[in-house]
Simulated scan of single mutants.
Amino acid sequence: MTAELKQICKSLRLAHVADIYGSIAFENSAQFVEALLNKELELRKEAKAARLIKKAKFLQEKTLPSFEWSEKIHFPHQLDSEELVKLHFIERKENLIFTGSTGLGKTHLATALGHEACQKGFEVRFYRVSDLAEVLEKAWAEGKWGQFRNRFKKVDLVILDEMGYVPFSKEGAELLFQLISDWYEQTSLIITSNLEFSQWNRVFSDPRLTAALVDRVIHHAHILNFTGDSFRVSNALSRQK
């Protein structure tokens, strides 16, 4: 490709054409242009998904094809696995709550859904709740609380992993409550927890704040209960047989 054509591609923001035009098979000029531009769009989509996945900051790389669905996951009557993976809950600003003991796949499924959301062009953020508490308190102490809250204005899905494993300080609980209030009916949440809602007061020491937070979280939520033995424990026991 000539330098002039490369400059034209740059001006038109065709990021991939200069690299791929020579590999496009064609029978006529119209078919060539169509195939070339379709490939440009495909590569743009892949590049965008990669950027979104990086920004989400998942702790593990988990995808839906690697997730093992089982009867141990109890769905609400209005939802099943087929509907879940379509991600309509994000478009409707609804929440997902995954409850159950450790090792049952809650984080895997939450991460996989987040990964799929990135593939479909949604902005996602992933936080382990204990880490988020530290970030919130640091932002408040450094006078960057407003700046931190503004980061979520264009975010479509926030994943809060391991709610309940570590209690919050009073300040941390209040800051998280403010964030969830911001996200209410504006941003979808996926929350994983080993605690039932009645036990969330172990995490948030203020009963009134706990009740208000739970009310916002479950108002537009689908609750999935994970039951049975830990996959990690089951795998370890099977290796000993």
Rank of each mutant, 00 (worst) to 15 (best):
N225T: 14
I223K: 11
F197G: 01
R216S: 08
L160K: 01
H219G: 06
A221T: 06
A212Q: 11
I191G: 01
Y184D: 03
R208P: 00
L189K: 06
Y184L: 08
A212C: 12
I223A: 08
P207H: 11
V217T: 14
H219F: 10
L189H: 06
L160F: 11
Q199C: 10
F197I: 02
A173I: 00
D206W: 08
G164Q: 08
S198T: 15
V166A: 08
Q178S: 13
W200C: 11
L209S: 09
Q186D: 03
F204C: 04
I190F: 01
F197S: 08
R202M: 13
E174D: 15
A173E: 04
V217F: 09
F197N: 04
R216K: 14
S169K: 11
D215S: 12
H222G: 06
P207W: 11
N194D: 11
D161A: 07
R216C: 09
Y184R: 03
I190D: 01
T210K: 12
R208M: 14
V203E: 01
L179M: 15
S169V: 13
D161S: 08
A221G: 09
I191V: 15
E196N: 14
T227C: 01
A221E: 05
L160G: 05
Q178N: 14
L176D: 08
E185P: 10
V217P: 02
H219M: 08
H220T: 00
S188M: 10
V217C: 10
D215T: 06
P207N: 13
L224M: 14
S198N: 15
G164V: 09
Y165Q: 01
A221R: 03
G228N: 09
L209R: 12
P167H: 07
I218Y: 06
